[in-house]
Nucleic acid binder design. Structure first.
Lengths: 349, 349
DNA sequence: CTGAAAGCGCTTACAG
DNA sequence: CTGAAAGCGCTTACAG
């Protein structure tokens, strides 16, 4: 029974013994009181550090409190954000992390400055942040970066700053695939109903569209390109405008499913048959694309996967791992459903 | 200086004195241990509530953290839950409360026992809970109640226990309104595609349906009543079965919008025109009802309002206010859209 | 199931 | 500035 080296519980008293001082002195150091000689304080701090002492409160927190990651979304009304959130939640459950929801577009939300938000993240002991929103421009992320808060932006609307970690999808390739699909069906008059002009992801989709047209030697027609919001209303308005044109397009590539749904709704009202009279391709591949009438051909983004990847990045940053890359881009792929068909005969010049 | 009634620091011992028990007993109650007689526990809980006792840990948390309310949902794939969540978030933003999301149906979620969950709520300093799920039966709520955690259940699937605070909608009146609407259009053969048989809300809808039929002297036809899940698949299967019947119904009352959407999809496949050949009414009034083809006549529940009410109840419990009522039921109302029409001539006997 | 007693770990008050 | 002693508030172990 001469076991001499038992684990020695990590109490204040144990630290005191190790540092060769009394318990009250250690207590003072731990509580940041000033009436301790610099030399004594140093000895105590060394002992504390070496042993990894935690106060009972800290211990309880660590034992029971799991890391909390804040997810910032514009709204729950977009299938896009909800799908990403699903992916985040899935990985969170698997990695024993909690997710706090912060929906910026909600009524009555107090308009905190980024500076205040960032300080609060620290004060409330949050571990990191995932942002899927247009509410934070790159510049507004600066207070978070300055405080070294792990943060990941999903498919940033603005070109990401050098040091912001981001997750996105291959938008350019997706835009090209959608357009190539329509070209393959014989369409030549293909419109692009885009999202916000400033959005990086929208630009990539537009340029993919243009690249596909150019590769086929089809002239890019300015009146066929419209930007707006990623919302059904924009699809409705865009469809109305396109149907007024002297040379109607025979196909529309909408830069999001929600825009495409607006197009379908307006087509129904105006008795334009989809896909017989006109083909429509969406972007995102949310469940809305499956459930629409007709089911929507769409460029599918791996939204859940993107959510998982974002959380994985946050956790790596929390652990202090070095990241191999500050940007991950996951592959999109075209899912052909029933909203696209060969270009109608009479429309071919 | 004979001030006799000093504020008496809020210690365990003080509570013990007030409740007329010993400190260890109070300690047990606070920690949710089970070896306490129900009566003793009640006495202690009253004293705790009255005095607003907080453990040292809680006290420290409260000093610089905003209250965090945990929202428990089955899944984000149901518009129902997302709408309620929206209401919760709205009120949360206005009352400076944070919302933590716990989605039980997510892959990889660790299956914690209610006992463990409840203890974690305390340990992590959470302030309360809103539950919109079938994952917790009334019995499973017991560990939360025992710990005096403010908890509110939304439209409980099980009949709520006496002391569980709950928020619901007037399901019976809604079921009656839906059916009366169909009767008013001349329908007599009206089917009911219900949700889970055990669900309180489903039973209320069913009985509202029966009440309307009986009021009109219409025989309740057993083969027209089917229960299942609140899911589109159930609508598809139910529609298939109903179309096989010798006497097809001319109208269907689906106990949820998602069931109704399944009905619409199957109708499309089988070339049954809605509403010309058959009328369909849903329940919930989520955005899905507006966006379906044709737009769905549906009994609208004030889901956002329910979410707000739930959070309001949680906050009141947190403050220790006495509640005037442990149950709030908000009004439903029928929204007539395009999926219902007069009973087709040839179907009238 | 209850509570007197002992214990734990930290903090406070104060003599030196 | 330091630490022995007393104290605080909660928890544990266990006799009844």
């Amino acid at each position: 029974m001469a076991g001499s080296e038992r684990p020695a519980k990590l109490t204040l008293a144990a630290i005191a013994r190790e540092a060769g001082v009394s318990a009250p002195t250690v207590s003072k150091v731990v509580n940041g009181r000033e009436d301790v000689a610099a030399e004594t304080r140093a000895k105590v701090l060394t002992a504390l550090e070496r042993s990894g002492y935690k106060s009972p409160l800290q211990r309880k927190n660590i034992a029971w409190r799991r890391p909390v990651v804040e997810m910032v979304l514009d709204s729950l009304n977009s299938a896009y954000g909800v799908e990403v959130l699903n992916g985040v939640l899935e990985h969170a459950a698997a990695s024993d992390v909690e997710v706090l929801l912060n929906v910026t577009g909600v009524q009555g939300a107090s308009p905190l400055s980024p500076e205040q938000r960032a300080q609060r993240i620290i004060d409330e002991g949050r571990s990191g942040m995932i942002v899927v929103t247009s509410a934070f421009s790159s510049a507004q992320l600066e207070p978070f970066l300055r405080r070294d808060i792990p943060i990941v932006v999903i498919d940033p609307l603005n070109p990401p700053q050098g040091d912001v970690v981001s997750v996105g999808a291959s938008n350019w390739a997706g835009g090209k695939a959608a357009t190539t699909h329509l070209l393959g069906l014989g369409h030549r008059r293909i419109a692009f109903l885009g999202g916000p002009e400033a959005a990086e992801c929208n630009q990539a989709r537009l340029h993919g569209y243009m690249a596909a047209l150019m590769a086929e030697g089809v002239q890019v027609e300015d009146s066929y390109i419209m930007s707006g919001a990623f919302r059904p209303e924009h699809g409705v308005a865009g469809m109305k405008a396109l149907l007024q044109l002297e040379q109607r397009p025979t196909a529309i590539f909408a830069a999001s499913d929600s825009i495409a749904l607006g197009v379908l709704a307006e087509a129904r009202r105006q008795q334009v048959r989809i896909p017989e009279d006109m083909s429509v391709v969406g972007f995102d591949g949310t469940y809305q694309a499956e459930e629409s009438v007709p089911p929507l051909t769409s460029v599918s983004q791996p939204l859940q996967e993107m959510g998982r990847a974002a959380l994985r990045f946050v956790l790596r940053q929390m652990r202090g791992d070095t990241l191999d890359s500050r940007r991950v881009e996951l592959a999109t792929h075209l899912v052909v459903r029933e909203s696209t068909a060969p270009c109608p005969r009479e429309a071919v010049n």
